[in-house]
Design a protein around this nucleic acid. Structure first.
Lengths: 247, 247
DNA sequence: ACGGCTCATTAACCCAAGTTAGGGGCAAGC
DNA sequence: GCTTGCCCCTAACTTGGGTTAATGAGCCGT
């Protein structure tokens, strides 16, 4: 799967985005062209840069890099609520005409593509499939959120980490960002992973060690190798259906 | 606020639903009438009845009662992902044309109202405000989900329970289901509460005791009394903004 | 009135995960 | 070449919350 998407996509991030959208709802050549013309490629943003809310006025798409939505609590604790990978909308506020109040940070060099809200509105009228695809994307985002709730609520540390690694494997595969050898780049520190799965940095480390020892994965300098996907999904109790990548 | 909504609403559940929708987006008299005519009141469903997915083919609204979405894991652990209160859509699959795969149970005698998907589609075209209101409802549902992620990820047991009690206070106030004396019905056992906030039954009990001792709340036979809302929101670090009930 | 149920409650004990406190590798800047 | 600063990693200790188990209150249905 990753090979297929990888070779097919080349490495133009806008094409990746179109490919991702098409998985939600097929888009004809005309609609794709309209998107290509309407999208503005933003500047390269360095890692650990917080995005200002007004930067999300438009319809924003992550073209490359990595973004996390998070919330900082009074006591200094931080929870990452959403991981945005290339090809994803950064925020779905545009669907309901509100700007989200969530905080966003990049964790890697990132590039955002924008379509002016006004322009997107016109596209949505002209190409209903585009609107449907965006709405499906929002629905899948919600499904991912529910899955995170389940992880945080009833899964053990090992299950949570295995889950999120599985989830990312499938999400990144869909956009050709996994290698044929079974690896992908994960530009998050263990502390950030912990903030996403609700574990302390130390325990993330402990648990990753034990996942490595089972032979399901290995890690090296920001790269995750899925050594045994079967074992990993079994360990996590993971079922990729909620990502609706089959279409 | 509860008084206002309460007296204004009377107790017709369809009016409650319309009131709730209007908080998302104002609906004119014509749109309201169209909804009144299109909605079919279902039978009364007893507590602890699981809803079959096909029962959610249509646009389903909880008219009265209480519904939980949950997921059962292999090891017998259960996580409740969403609490549906009267006036809420039971599921948002209709917005994207998919039937959700989530399991649902009633925890109280409940009545569901349905609008045939086809009929809703026509209404949506005729009354764009109705569609926008539904989409906003979905967005708020997602925001509630994010808040749950934050609770499960970084809040202590006391904060989680305080949070959810605050959330319900505000949600129920908006539909006139809180009393002027500061109470509301919470038709969930402590075990179910635990499944919602990711705590064991025993620890829910312990923590509720301590919340009672602070004087912020009291509990009695399925009724929650908010004795000191200020204290409770402070304890939870709760900010009702995400529910967007101000409009 | 009597079992039998579910639910709230409490106590005693246990463990998964948090906390604190390092050590070591590596890259960036001086 | 040296410092500074992350980040990964590990060990030792602590703790919030889970587990087990038992009691009692209320609510049926007979």
């Amino acid at each position: 799967m990753s090979n297929f998407a990888g070779t097919l996509l080349g490495n133009d991030p806008v094409e990746r985005f179109l490919h991702r959208l098409s998985l939600f709802e097929p888009l004809d050549a005309e609609a794709r062209d309209a998107v290509r013309r309407s999208i503005n490629r933003g500047p390269l943003i360095p890692p650990l840069q917080e995005l200002q809310p007004d930067a999300l006025q438009d319809v924003s798409v992550l073209l490359s890099g990595w973004i996390c939505h998070f919330r900082l609590l009074g006591n200094g604790r931080r929870q990452i609520t959403t991981l945005v990978v290339p090809g994803d909308f950064v925020d779905f506020g545009f669907l309901v005409g509100t700007v989200s109040s969530l905080q966003c940070v990049t964790t890697a060099h990132s590039q955002i593509g924008r379509i002016r809200t006004r322009a997107f509105g016109k596209l949505a009228l002209q190409f209903p499939a585009l609107l449907r695809a965006s709405q499906r994307a929002a629905a899948v985002d919600a499904a991912i959120g529910r899955e995170r709730i389940i992880s945080l609520g009833v899964r053990t540390a090992a299950e949570r980490l295995a889950s999120i690694l599985c989830e990312l494997w499938f999400r990144l595969s869909a956009i050709g960002l996994t290698s044929a050898e079974g690896s992908y780049d994960l530009p998050m520190t263990q502390a950030e992973l912990g903030a996403a799965v609700g574990l302390s940095t130390v325990h993330v480390n402990r648990t990753l060690q034990s996942l490595r020892r089972t032979g399901a994965i290995s890690l090296q300098s920001g790269k995750v190798w899925i050594r045994d996907l079967e074992k990993l999904t079994a360990l996590a109790g993971f079922d990729p259906a909620y990502l609706s990548l089959q279409a």
